[in-house]
Design a binder for these strands. Structure first.
Lengths: 110, 110
DNA sequence: TATATTTACTACGACAGCCGTAGTACGACA
DNA sequence: TGTCGTACTACGGCTGTCGTAGTAAATATA
């Protein structure tokens, strides 16, 4: 087994995206590349999963979108920035992860 | 936050159930109590989730069901035992967990 | 200059697993 | 007699993921 089935990660895609947005805004394609490289190619988020996460998280108030103005007549990207609620959500998810990890590991044999 | 939302654990319910079945057969009610106590009350599996996991895993050949004969006219329990395929699946899941953990932790701030 | 590839998305619908609600049925205990 | 604990089953809704497909501009390659 070399790749992680993303169903395992279900519920943590949002967390990964938010992590990337913590420091500066970004956009779909860049985020997907970052997730891939940061995970050392072990996790590749599906495009549809990513973009539907944007929609959902914007609706939930965790991120805000804006268009870049500096690309002249080039194709516009949709950038996302994290909101305060998004930061809060992210840190809550981190706490939850710690708990989850502890629990799951009681059922894992190495 | 004191309880884990089970959506986070999605995909690991099967693993937890199989872990319990590794040593000896068991049945629904007992397994749910064990998951609760082993996780120190931090994770309580929903009944419907548990029983639908049984159906799915039996269909996939990871477990086999049998009725207990020794309860006289009392209500019969449905016991489950793990199969060889189930053991294999369990150990695969453990490996996957290690990988998943490594990946997710790159996106987590403590 | 023509073509392929990469970038950057959007739309749509299917599916799997989880979960809420509800109901059944037996035994024990007060 | 009624409540509580045990031990399930049925049904349907929801959410997040994923496959397939398509659009279109920018860039690299031939």
């Amino acid at each position: 087994m070399s790749a992680i089935s993303s169903d395992v990660i279900r519920g943590y895609n949002d967390t990964m995206i938010l992590y990337i947005l913590l420091n500066e805004p970004s956009y779909g394609y860049e985020i997907s590349k970052l997730i891939k490289s940061m995970s050392e190619e072990k996790y590749i988020i599906k495009e549809t999963t990513l973009y539907s996460a944007f929609t959902r998280m914007e609706k939930n108030g965790y991120i805000e979108s804006f268009s870049d103005e500096d690309r002249g007549n080039g194709k516009r990207r949709t950038y996302y920035r994290i909101t305060d609620a998004g930061r809060q959500y992210y840190y809550d998810k981190c706490e939850e992860w710690t708990l989850t990890k502890e629990v799951v590991e009681k059922f894992i044999k190495k």
